[in-house]
């Protein structure tokens, strides 16, 4: 138990250190974008017809604290970021936490649901594929999962939309029906959300599932061939107990290990799917902020929150791993 608490403490410290380092990189990248928030706002104002002088820019800089030294600004940015406060967007002039809040959690929820869906299917199917000698079953599973890997998500999304538009006259886009879009959370709104959310979750989960089945199958086949499984069978352990307690249990560690990576991959695919299904989620805001409006404050906030989610997931998976695998417990603390 002491060993375990020590492991968790070390891991948590490493996670926070990682986040601080990442924040430094993110902040530096934000700084390297030509111009700063003040100039950008002023340029925006100019395009709206106002006439603004260099003095106004200077005043705006002081107001935003942009005249402070670089390290000091990073320090206060990271200090606020850890409290969930990211200041105002350069262009939109609204509080980023408010702007992002719900959208970010919705995005994270979509990605986590897709991940959950993927593994809920992949673990039993992968184990079945690894243990079954049935050639027809194995080959059809292989075909389906290659299809899943080869078929781009956006194509699948388009196909489903086209199909449902032609069949039901409803394109299934968005995350909420019109009447609920700006309503407060309620039971009805939540049900409406679920009615819309299954499609992006399914589409995001589709290729993730195919990928996860391949992973689970390969890991299981690998473990089943190991001597300790034969040795357990030689001791009289058999059937489901043999399968679950020996190869499946030991194949689990690398699977848990890959969850953080999978989440990242799903998040990367979210913006394209969101674009097609016209979802307003954090991924599309990120593209908007990075590519179009050059809103460094907003982009930085999204990247930081995304990184924090991945670091957080990795921390959680590490703790689960340490609970299930004694070798991992040993590896960090020594």
């Amino acid at each position: 138990m002491l060993q375990f608490s020590k492991f968790v403490a070390v891991r948590a410290a490493l996670a926070i250190l990682t986040l601080v380092l990442v924040s430094f990189i993110v902040f530096t990248l934000m700084e390297m974008v030509p111009g700063d928030c003040a100039e950008r706002y002023v340029a925006f104002k100019n395009s709206q017809g106002s006439v603004i002088t260099p003095e106004d820019i200077q005043i705006e800089r002081v107001r935003l604290g942009l005249d402070q030294p670089y390290i000091q600004r990073w320090g206060s940015w990271i200090f606020n970021a850890f409290q969930g406060e990211f200041g105002d967007s350069c262009i939109l002039r609204v509080n980023i936490a408010q702007l992002l809040g719900q959208k970010f959690w919705l995005s994270l929820g979509l990605c986590l649901s897709a991940l959950l869906l993927a593994y809920a299917i992949a673990i039993p199917v992968g184990i079945l594929a690894a243990t079954s000698k049935n050639a027809v079953l194995n080959n059809s599973l292989r075909l389906v999962s290659y299809l899943g890997l080869a078929l781009p998500n956006f194509l699948l999304a388009l196909m489903i939309m086209l199909f449902s538009t032609v069949m039901f006259g409803n394109s299934l886009t968005g995350l909420f029906s019109k009447e609920f879009r700006d309503a407060a959370w309620s039971y009805d709104r939540f049900m409406d959300f679920l009615g819309h959310a299954w499609l992006p979750i399914f589409i995001l989960g589709w290729s993730a599932t195919a990928f996860a089945i391949q992973t689970v199958r390969a890991l299981m086949s690998d473990e089943i061939g190991k001597l300790y499984v034969t040795a357990a069978a030689a001791r009289g352990v058999s059937g489901r107990r043999l399968l679950m307690r020996y190869p499946a249990r030991h194949a689990l560690s690398p699977i848990i290990n890959s969850l953080g990576f999978d989440l990242n991959r799903i998040f990367n695919e979210l913006p394209i799917v969101a674009l097609i299904l016209t979802l307003t989620e954090a991924g599309s805001l990120l593209i908007e902020a990075l590519a179009r409006s050059n809103d460094q404050q907003l982009a930085g906030a999204i990247i930081f929150m995304l990184t924090a989610s991945i670091v957080g997931i990795n921390f959680i998976t590490d703790v689960i791993l340490a609970l299930t695998d004694p070798r991992i417990r040993r590896s960090i603390v020594g």
């Binding site: 190991k226 001597l227 040795a231």
Partner: peptide
């Protein structure tokens, strides 16, 4: 299998499951 007949293997490391005591 483990009742009236037991077997021991060449590699003791590999014949114990690594994550079970």
């Amino acid at each position: 299998r483990g009742g009236a007949i037991s077997m021991i293997f060449q590699e003791p490391m590999a014949s114990f499951a690594p994550a079970i005591t």
